[in-house]
């Protein structure tokens, strides 16, 4: 068979040197592409670096302890304490609902879900909520809680809308964390005669904790900065001076009550920008944005750090 194949020619004779310029064009293109790709990576860092630098400079002289701890003021720079409080309060309230539901949902998806229509529907729902714009989720909260339930603009309505919006993320991150636990661990537990639920509770979930905590922190970061969901659910009004000694959570004037409007830091930035006219508007927004960015950094680094420490602890013991 080779006889009929080899009749075309022969490339011997002068062999090109290995250092030859035979493929200069493609090598130049390769070099250029490499430079461009490095450039895109550098651009990402450049943008992020300038954003952080920008806010560090803008917040200089604005952010101080009194900026964080004071009430807003008409005549001076004042502070952002009430809206910062509301952000933290809303975060806690949302996570209180979203973490258990998301974790349990993640357990179902990772451990129980079979390949059937119901699982398909859950996945479709998960993807759908993830892609519905946050403003639409906020509007849904507006009809359901504010109008139909007659709650008005309340922290609880906002927290529930935020839960709706973040449930898919929380569920997916939990599912991923649980799926990352090796199958051998499950088999070992089941082989010892443990039931499926005992295995999940005592083997799978503890081993998945680093991943679960990372998931919680990442979700928390997103909840903290979200504004569009809250515009029409938790309200956009200027918060009153809170009396933290009022612990009656059924009383709408108590800062601890879920049945009161709660303008958060992100919503406050939006509100100041769209209607604020005060002399200190720009400083206040710069300072608030700087605090939001710092929180994002803290949440991100925190998630990394906690995840790393916990997984080291778990694997070492």
């Amino acid at each position: 068979m080779t006889a009929n194949a080899g009749s075309i020619g022969r490339s011997s004779g002068a062999k090109p040197s290995l250092k030859g310029k035979a493929s200069r064009g493609s090598i130049l293109a390769d070099r250029a592409a490499t430079v461009v790709l490095w450039g895109t990576g550098a651009l990402v860092l450049l943008i992020l670096g300038s954003i952080i630098l920008h806010f560090a400079m803008a917040a200089w002289g604005v952010v101080s302890l009194s900026f964080i701890l004071d009430n807003p003021s008409q005549t001076t720079l004042g502070g952002i304490m009430p809206v910062l409080w509301n952000s933290i309060y809303m975060l806690a309230l949302t996570m209180l609902i979203a973490v258990p539901v998301g974790l349990l949902g993640g357990i179902y998806m990772a451990e129980y879900a079979g390949d059937n229509i119901v699982t398909g529907a859950i996945r479709f729902a998960e993807e759908s909520i993830s892609s519905v714009p946050s403003i639409v989720v906020g509007l849904f909260g507006l009809i359901l809680f504010v109008d139909d339930f007659h709650w008005g603009f309340t922290a609880l309505a906002g927290a529930l809308a935020l839960t709706f919006f973040n449930l898919p993320l929380m569920t997916r991150l939990s599912e991923q964390a649980l799926r990352a636990v090796p199958q051998d661990e499950r088999s070992a537990s089941l082989a010892l005669g443990a039931t499926k639920w005992q295995t999940i509770r005592h083997v799978v979930v503890p081993l998945a904790i680093p991943g679960l905590i990372t998931g919680v922190i990442l979700t928390a970061g997103r909840v903290f900065g979200e504004a569009a969901v809250l515009l029409f659910t938790a309200g956009i009004g200027t918060p009153p001076h809170y009396n933290f000694m009022n612990l009656d959570i059924t009383n709408p004037t108590s800062p601890w009550s879920p049945f009161r409007p709660a303008t958060t830091l992100s919503v406050y930035i939006y509100k100041l920008n769209s209607e604020g006219l005060g002399a200190f508007k720009n400083q206040i927004v710069d300072g608030s944005a700087a605090i939001l960015i710092s929180m994002v950094l803290i949440f991100n680094l925190g998630a990394r750090f906690v995840g790393r420490v916990l997984s080291r602890k778990l694997t070492a013991s």
Partner: peptide, 8 residues
């Protein structure tokens, strides 16, 4: 980048 809120 993902974490930076849209108002910011």
């Amino acid at each position: 980048f993902v974490g930076i809120p849209s108002v910011v």
